[in-house]
Design a protein around this nucleic acid. Structure first.
Length: 286
RNA sequence: GCAGAGGUAGUGAAGCGGUCAAACACAACAGACUGUAAAUCUGUCGGCAUUCGCCUUCGAAGGUUCGAAUCCUUCCCUCUGCA
């Protein structure tokens, strides 16, 4: 089959990056990172961003887009990624879209119609309301409740969209989507190993700098590592307890990612990178 | 050895005669997700039945009571103070 775009998805620490680099090399492709954390400049270690050397070797898109105090979004990613996709395809290369941010992946893969409409003042007003008040507000305006009817953030978004649901289109043409899913135990081990490696590589210093320059509440600080180590940087907890917290955060994240991706029946799942890689090669040959 | 404090569901921790299968938090498990998504939120969470409901629990064994996680007795552990 004619594969122009290869998606590689899966939970954190499943080995997506290594697989992507290998396949990009073998297939002559370039990599688009669909990851809501590696977009931040200066946060390299704790976000498990591909290294400088790796990026010098294979072209990467979607990295270091903004500073830690700036906002990004799934819609922006979709727009950006379409541009990168075109650039890669124009070179007659395969694009490898790699990441664990489900909404970014789906937005691109299913051609979501995002709706960015939102009014700063209205949002502030809505945020001051309770869940019940928001329900009433919506009932008054005949705006249907979203599935997550107890999630304030979703209620507000529903109102901002005027109750309209976004559109979902056909899957991106000429694309193949592969998922990496090691057994739970192996994934846990990998998360722990990676945690140690991150600390050794200076993730703590990175976190301290992030907090020092931007504070504790910026968008970038919500990632598992920074969230877990904020108490340490404030001298409220020791490294070991924060590290345990980090493993937990990452495990819980991986669980949510798996839940998200399970819904996509187009994904071909593999336990190991080796199997995934074999499959991709044979699928492309066909 | 004496004097205190305590032993509650996976963990922490409420409850201190009935409305207790037992608050709450965390963990766990399942799920949702369309411009914050590594975010945010929901459900379940002793066992069985999974509709009514039934059964076994609050260190152990007895006892008081119509009724006990809650009161009494003894015993077993843990921590603190004095020795």
């Amino acid at each position: 089959m004619n594969v122009k775009t290869l998606f590689i998805v899966g939970p954190t620490a499943s080995g997506k990056t290594a697989l992507a680099l290998q396949l990009a090399e073998e297939l002559g492709g370039e990599i688009i990172c669909a990851d809501s954390r590696t977009i931040y400049k200066g946060l390299d270690v704790a976000t498990a961003k591909p290294s400088k050397a790796e990026r010098a070797h294979i072209a990467h898109y979607g990295l270091d887009l903004i500073s830690p105090d700036q906002k990004y979004s799934a819609g922006k990613f979709q727009k950006d990624a379409r541009g990168w996709l075109e650039a890669i395809h124009n070179k007659n290369k395969i694009a490898l879209v790699v990441g664990g941010t489900g909404l970014y992946i789906d937005g691109l893969y299913y051609n979501f119609t995002f709706n960015e409409a939102y009014d700063e003042a209205l949002r502030a007003e809505l945020e001051s309301k309770s869940i019940e008040e928001l329900h009433d507000y919506m009932a008054d305006r005949s705006i249907a409740l979203p599935e997550n009817s107890k999630n304030k953030r979703y209620l507000i978004r529903s109102i901002e969209r005027g109750g309209e649901l976004g559109g979902k289109g056909d899957p991106l043409p000429d694309s193949l989507i592969v998922g990496l899913l090691p057994e739970r135990e192996i994934l846990d081990d990998r998360i722990r190993l990676r945690g140690h490696a991150m600390i050794a590589a200076g993730a703590l210093e990175e976190a301290e700098q992030l907090f020092e320059h931007y504070g504790y509440d910026v968008p970038a600080a919500s990632a598992p590592f920074y969230k877990a180590f904020a108490p340490y940087c404030r001298h409220e907890a020791d490294v070991d307890s924060c590290l345990e917290r980090f493993y937990l955060n990452d495990r819980q994240l991986s669980k949510r990612q798996i839940t998200w991706f399970k819904r996509n029946s187009d994904i071909y799942w593999f336990e190991t990178a080796t199997k995934a890689s074999e499959f991709v090669h044979s699928a492309i040959k066909r």
